[in-house]
């Protein structure tokens, strides 16, 4: 079959854009509920907020099937090694949302028991503020992450310490949320 037979009903684009687009729409979060924020995370998956609109409702119980870890709640010194292990068990590419001030900075609990910010243990992509963040805030964080995935590099290089998801040289990332899918749009 020659190309002429297709009658032009196809689009062309870069494979990189296609991969990003597909990844963006199929993020599966791991169930990693810790504290109050976990209740709001469940509420976000419930009927009123309906996280399924973004293809996010499939909370995987096994970290090996998940590619997003929503750290929902305060991380204690005793939990920190467990959290790191769950993170290590997840397959690349993987992302982390730090949900709530306790996970982001320790929040109200600046004391001996709580890790002052989960970014000391795992690299965090998006921080959601609030105590606890309402489901709308979590959804905004998730959409922000989607946007980062869509505009980021395919291969993340976390070791360099650079915020690799931002494409600094070519097109500065703008937080336009929600976004339309632009398949194959030249930069």
């Amino acid at each position: 079959m020659a190309l002429e037979d297709l009658q032009h009903n196809f689009l062309t684009g870069r494979i990189e854009d296609l991969v990003r687009w597909a990844r963006r729409a199929s993020v599966w979060p791991a169930t990693f509920g810790l504290a109050c924020c976990a209740i709001e995370m469940m509420a976000a998956g419930g009927a009123d907020f309906d996280l399924a609109r973004y293809g996010m409702e499939v909370f995987r119980n096994s970290p090996r099937q998940a590619d997003l870890m929503i750290v929902a709640g305060r991380v204690s010194q005793k939990m920190a090694p467990v959290l790191r292990q769950v993170y290590d068990q997840m397959m690349e590419p993987k992302w982390v949302i730090s949900m709530g001030v306790c996970a982001s900075t320790g929040g109200l609990f600046n004391n001996y028991a709580i890790v002052q910010g989960v970014d000391q243990i795992v690299p965090v992509d998006v921080y959601a503020p609030g105590c606890p963040p309402s489901p709308e805030t979590l959804m905004h964080a998730i959409l922000t992450l989607h946007e980062q995935i869509r505009t980021g590099e395919i291969l993340k290089r976390r070791s360099s310490g650079e915020p690799t998801h931002l494409d600094h040289q070519e097109s500065p990332w703008t937080p336009e949320v929600p976004v339309a899918v632009r398949l194959g749009t030249p930069k």
Binding site: Q77, K78, T105, G106, N110, N111, Y112, A113, Q116
Partner: peptide, 23 residues
């Protein structure tokens, strides 16, 4: 029961600092 097994000290004693980290 609450702290890790290898934790040193007893946190709620008054001579045990709160462990506050400067922001």
């Amino acid at each position: 029961i609450l702290m890790p097994e290898d934790w040193e000290g007893h946190p709620l004693r008054k001579d045990y600092g709160a462990g506050r980290v400067p922001v």
